[in-house]
Design a protein around this nucleic acid. Structure first.
Lengths: 334, 334
DNA sequence: CCCTACAATGAAAGAGCTTTCATTGAAGCG
DNA sequence: CGCTTCAATGAAAGCTCTTTCATTGTAGGG
């Protein structure tokens, strides 16, 4: 049995009349090599049927140039927007973006284990997932650089916002605009992922309202599943009921948008009869003119990615806990 | 402090007090090394949690399979929604999702070339990018299974919609609703990616309108950059001008939403004074109650992924060109 | 005892890549 | 024209292992 030795990068280099370095570059960083050279290298590759050996490649590369993002099954626009931020940073950094979606903690657990062990990511970004200590230990032990978004942790870098402050800002804003009958609309807690910023937003709102002498009664706090239809149904109920609030702070833009629509359907003038305020500043907020508390989602993704890259480039950089500022974006709804 | 990037064979050797050659032998050819030595090497391996690195990576690359998605820099909601579909299919299939964003054809070209050769993806999905024959040849030659979305190609599988038919459907719908002064609003052509469904949507619309005896004059075709602000400005102009149309078909939901907002700001009743119709059925269409031509973006991503997986599982499956149906989703705006 | 045989081991040379660093030639510019 | 800049390239070092080959020590055989 005569084994034909596989073609290597050397064969390609010889055939194309260049050095192996150039061949390697053509494959990994093509913009660094001249158009013509590139063409002729490709031709050689093509003619010899060259396929790089994964094992040798992995060996030579200290890095993989891959960043993973773990996110809850990404159906919520807020995840998408953060992801977009991550992608925009990674795009011009020559890192690949690998996405892992998890539906439950179990799967999350599995990802953490296998990813940390087989060292084939250079860094990890975890979006909006509860993160317990055992995960952190594992990651540290295996040296997988990680940045958490929306869930702080002692020993890992994180990017967060102050949800409570956001609630307070909304309270201040609405009261200052002269509204008297304030309410809150949020979604119900999903226990699965154990993270629930909504609770904090409500707490801040409520607390501040109390300070301003307009305590928020429990009958003014509505909760509903994170679902358009359900939210609209509830909205209709609230808005056509006897004691209609004149301003509602919604825990997320999605709910605010649903409410806005109901209000319009009912012929209410916004913000005259009803002020609606959201939280997040999703793209859609701009489309419909929703006044909202902006948490700059794109930016949070961007910053998380930048943080990660800087730590990867230099392991000595300290762990950081970045608190992103919130601001009120005034549009037409409140 | 557990700052361990990765344990190498050298660490093990040092710990066990032997040379790396011996460690290697213990792993690959154990009977060649003395019983006691072997035991102590194993102990060291255990204590350090050593996993042969290069090998582990290569193995991981071998068995963890990867699907790549190439998309234009994903800022447009329609890409995101398709991506979501892709992710949802891949999620329970043991495939990783790797995302490549391209800003121009040049970079796209690069990706195609290197990805096909590197053998590093098991399949590829291309979203909304013009795809010329040389790409297809390259992919076929290197056996990288590919599915195109929104851009048909002879020899590669694809998932498409009939944009022209969509335009016709809109025309039918609006005319049947009794509107008389019809117009069209679309975004200007971006030559970069060479794909422009908008043109087709307009063509279908115009053609059908002509058939229905209501030819669309050029003065009733508005174009504007794909940008909220610009669209709103133009919208204001159109709607407050002398010959206001009573129905506008927008080439994309984004524009329809912008227009809707302007109409409301101007106090027009929708759909009484003005009917607005979109195209895509983005999430936002539902939020704001936009009547639109649905192309089921999530579904297109899902189907593309399924198609891809089935071809990967069985190379004999035929190439398919799937034409996704369009439908009109009647909401409140028209 | 000396000599061969052989088991156990380490030093060092690959293996097939990537990446750094230095070199070269061609612009750009005052 | 000299001088700086910069893109394109090759030489060589480096990555983590495997394998070859030389070395050592020990056990038998004469």
């Amino acid at each position: 049995m005569n084994k034909r030795p596989a073609t290597t990068i050397y064969d390609v280099a010889r055939t194309a009349g260049v050095s192996i370095a150039t061949v390697s570059r053509v494959l990994n960083d093509p913009q660094k090599v001249n158009e013509e050279t590139r063409a002729s290298v490709f031709e050689a590759i093509h003619r010899l049927g060259y396929v790089p050996k994964a094992e040798a490649r992995a060996r030579a590369m200290q890095q993989n140039r891959r960043i993973g993002v773990i996110t809850p099954y990404f159906t919520a626009p807020s995840f998408v927007q953060r992801l977009r931020g991550v992608a925009s940073t990674l795009r011009d950094s020559n890192y690949e973006l690998v996405i892992y979606t998890v539906e439950n903690m179990h799967k999350f657990n599995r990802y953490i284990e296998t990813l940390s062990i087989n060292h084939y990511l250079d860094g990890l970004i975890v979006l909006s997932l509860q993160f317990d200590n055992s995960f952190a230990e594992r990651l540290l032990e295996y040296g997988l650089e990680t940045v958490l978004v929306e869930y702080p942790h002692q020993v890992l870098s994180s990017v967060e916002i102050d949800d409570e402050a956001g609630g307070r800002m909304a309270a201040d804003y609405l009261v200052q605009k002269g509204h008297r009958e304030l309410a809150f609309l949020g979604d119900t807690v999903i226990p699965e992922f154990g993270i629930h910023p909504i609770t904090l937003r409500l707490a801040g709102y409520r607390h501040r309202l109390a300070e301003l002498g307009k305590p928020l009664g429990n009958d003014r706090v509505y909760t509903v599943a994170y679902d358009m239809d359900a939210t609209r149904r509830l909205g209709r109920e609230i808005l056509s009921g006897p004691r209609r609030p004149d301003a509602i702070f919604c825990a997320t833009d999605m709910q605010a948008v649903a409410l806005l629509k109901v209000a319009r359907d009912l012929g209410l003038r916004v913000p005259g009869d009803l002020a609606v305020m959201g939280f997040d500043d999703l793209d859609v907020a701009e489309y419909v003119g929703l006044t909202t508390v902006r948490q700059h989602l794109d930016e949070s993704g961007k910053i998380a990615a930048e943080l990660l890259l800087s730590r990867i480039a230099n392991r000595d950089r300290p762990v950081q806990h970045i608190q992103l500022p919130l601001s009120i974006v005034e549009r037409d709804s409140a």
